[in-house]
């Protein structure tokens, strides 16, 4: 009776968790669902006279394998969620057909294979489950057991070899980076120095706080264009910042008219933002990464915008 209750509870839980594993969009949820299934199965093992396996299930699967999954998830990008739109025609339909067919067939085939009540393991595991298993492993199946050790070592080596990445070029030193910066300055006139931090009279060092020059005016170099554009769209752009930007744009227009084209004018912050900043290489698209603009990290909006509100 007790076993029945345990079974029905855990069966329902494990099937729901398995379905959740398959249908959740986020891989982390899937991993957690798998953990639930494994723990339920561990309990079911224990119920079926397999305490050693239950322990191993928890230690090896839930402990080691699940952790490994989670590690890799972190490496690959934990917050990426799968699109569940099917791209292969007919794949999902046939998968469901196959799954249902398989479930029915297996249930009919294996489920009806057993006649009569279980014999139980009391006779087989006379000296206790663990020692009986150990006896089997180290006597009759000792060769297979040793071979599994070779397999595990091979797997460990394989994982190391596969995950290892050889560096093909020397890591750039401070000196190299400095040279690069000044070479860029010579070529395009790009400012080699760090961009100005928050100004002398700045009340805090938030990213949307422009730096102040000694005369108290705003340094155009320090205005973050993304934030400015966002604030403009929301109508919360501080008027002094708007003035500075307008002046800069006007100066740029006249310079462009004088030269006929942009020429060697000092690039503005906006331009730097366009081409990705001075020190960073272009990142591949599609991955959500922090954007580095002009030496500062521009975080995805949300939190910083919120903190800025009260600062003004």
């Amino acid at each position: 009776m007790g076993e029945s209750i345990t079974f029905w509870v855990l069966a329902v839980v494990s099937v729901i968790a398995a379905l959740g594993l398959v249908f959740s969009r986020r891989a982390v949820y899937s991993a957690l669902m798998l953990g639930v299934v494994m723990l339920s199965l561990a309990v079911l093992y224990a119920v079926q006279d397999a305490p050693f396996l239950a322990a191993v299930q928890i230690i090896v699967y839930t402990g080691a394998v699940m952790m490994l999954f989670l590690f890799v998830l972190m490496l690959v990008g934990v917050d990426s969620s799968d699109s569940l739109v099917e791209t292969i025609r007919g794949q999902r339909f046939w998968a469901v057909v196959g799954g249902l067919g398989f479930a029915v067939l297996l249930a009919l085939g294996i489920g009806n294979a057993v006649v009569g009540s279980p014999k139980g393991l009391t006779a087989a595991a006379e000296g206790g489950n663990v020692s009986s298993l150990a006896q089997l492993i180290f006597t009759r199946h000792v060769f297979a057991f040793e071979v599994t050790s070779a397999l595990l070592i091979t797997a460990a080596l394989g994982a190391m070899v596969l995950a290892h990445r050889e560096r093909t070029e020397a890591k750039p030193t401070q000196r190299d980076l400095s040279r690069q910066r000044f070479a860029a300055f010579g070529r395009t006139g790009k400012n080699p120095a760090p961009l100005p931090g928050p100004g002398t009279y700045a009340r805090h060092n938030a990213i949307d706080m422009p730096a102040l020059l000694p005369d108290g005016t705003i340094s155009p170099l320090s205005v973050n264009r993304y934030i400015a554009r966002y604030e403009e769209s929301k109508g919360i752009l501080p008027p002094e910042v708007a003035d500075v930007l307008e002046q800069e744009e006007a100066a740029q227009r006249t310079a462009a008219q004088a030269n006929g084209h942009g020429g060697h004018s000092t690039p503005t912050v906006a331009e730097e933002a366009r081409d990705g900043g001075p020190d960073t290489e272009p990142l591949p698209e599609g991955t959500e990464q922090d954007t580095v603009v002009a030496g500062r990290v521009v975080r995805p909006r949300g939190e910083s915008a919120a903190t800025e509100e009260d600062g003004k």
Partner: peptide, 10 residues
């Protein structure tokens, strides 16, 4: 493979 296995089971 899956469908084939299902057919085999059947």
């Amino acid at each position: 493979i899956f469908l084939g296995a299902a057919v085999l089971a059947g």
